[in-house]
């Protein structure tokens, strides 16, 4: 466990050294400017637009942190062969994979935290400026729940990024596969719901394929509580609990597959 934390800390520090915080800060400034300009374009439900924009920027920044920074941190080790130096120490491959996951996850959580504070501030500011447009059921608990769910979905993507980096020898391919999985994960539920409603015989194979896909890929839409947060809609606690278990177990399983694959991989 100590080794995993050590590796996680090293990965985290490396990310910070890469001026990731500067990028996130830039995103935060853009978010503020965006909110100031953008919300004025609307005549109704200004708070809703701010919440939408705030949570979306957190999501986009988290994704960018994973794709442009997190994945690079691990792929670089493999590309530049620095992994030998790490594995020459008393660190097993499993610990390496888990350490990297933890390090990148910490970077993502930092990004979410920083932007979360800015987003909260900008939502509060809009509410103070336009108190008439606050949705009647808006609550900060729902807003924070949405941020938490969003973070969990980002961690799922981190685990997938680790798996694809281990699986392929090209970091570009790994990024591409992670983005594809992200897109499938976002839309699989809507497609599944749609095909389940059809009773057409011709759709039978397609239906089966979609059901299989919905089991193989994470249901990222289940973690999208932006609308609920923006309108103050009721969040189904049971669905939230199962989403949480779905997410955490998915991360665990993906990491196990990544560990098994990495243990078998020939490092040349």
């Amino acid at each position: 466990m100590k080794e995993i934390w050590l590796l996680a800390a090293t990965t985290y520090k490396e990310g910070i050294r890469n001026r990731i915080l500067l990028g996130i800060l830039l995103c935060a400034i853009l978010l503020c400017v965006f909110n100031l300009v953008f919300t004025n374009m609307f005549s109704h439900e200004l708070s809703k637009v701010t919440v939408d924009a705030g949570l979306s920027v957190i999501s986009i920044s988290g994704l960018m942190t994973i794709f442009f920074m997190g994945m690079n941190l691990m792929a670089k080790d493999l590309d530049k062969r620095t992994i030998y130096m790490v594995l020459a120490r008393p660190i097993s491959r499993s610990q390496y994979v888990l350490g990297k996951f933890l390090g990148i996850s910490l970077l993502v959580v930092t990004a979410v935290l920083l932007l979360g504070i800015v987003a909260t501030g900008s939502v509060k500011l809009t509410m103070l400026n336009a108190p008439d447009y606050i949705p009647p059921h808006f609550s900060w608990t729902k807003f924070m729940t949405a941020v938490f769910a969003l973070t969990l979905s980002l961690l799922i993507i981190v685990s997938l990024a680790i798996l694809f980096t281990v699986l392929t020898s090209s970091s570009f391919l790994a990024v591409l596969m992670t983005i594809s999985t992200y897109l499938i994960g976002q839309n699989a539920e809507a497609v599944r719901r749609l095909v389940l409603q059809t009773s057409s015989e011709a759709m039978y194979t397609f239906k089966k394929a979609i059901i299989i896909i919905s089991w193989l890929f994470p249901n990222l839409e289940a973690f999208n509580l932006k609308t609920a947060a923006a309108y103050g809609l009721v969040i189904d606690k049971e669905a939230l609990l199962w989403s949480f278990l779905h997410g955490v177990s998915y991360i665990g399983l993906i990491l196990i597959i990544a560990v098994v694959l990495f243990n078998r991989r020939e490092l040349t």
Binding site: N219, A239, W242, S243, L245, Y250
Partner: peptide
């Protein structure tokens, strides 16, 4: 995962 995903599908 099986329990969670199955219940999640049922609900959603």
């Amino acid at each position: 995962y099986t329990t969670g995903t199955s219940r999640l599908h049922d609900i959603r």
